[in-house]
């Protein structure tokens, strides 16, 4: 459980995110889902929907 780790953020809303995690910007929801899906697959991690147009990629 303690090994959960936030790897990246994929967002439509530039205002909503910041900090020292890798951040990917997308202009449409399809693009966002595609980027998040690719990243998650590459890093063997999972995509979670935070709800405000932000996807986080977390390794469990």
């Amino acid at each position: 459980m303690a090994k959960d780790k936030l790897l990246a953020v994929v967002t439509l809303n530039k205002e909503a995110v910041g900090g020292d995690v890798p951040i990917f910007f997308a202009s449409t929801e399809e693009e966002q889902a595609r980027i998040a899906g690719t990243l998650a697959q590459v890093m063997k991690a999972m995509v979670h929907d935070v709800g405000n147009g932000v996807y986080v990629i977390v390794k469990h």
């Binding site: 889902a33 999972m46 979670h48 929907d49 709800g51 986080v56």
Partner: peptide, 20 residues
């Protein structure tokens, strides 16, 4: 329920990707 997967009334996990 939104991104939240449920079995009956029990919450399981948050699934982000619509495809999944």
């Amino acid at each position: 329920a939104g991104p939240l997967l449920m079995v009956n009334e029990i919450e399981i996990m948050n699934v982000g990707l619509p495809k999944m």
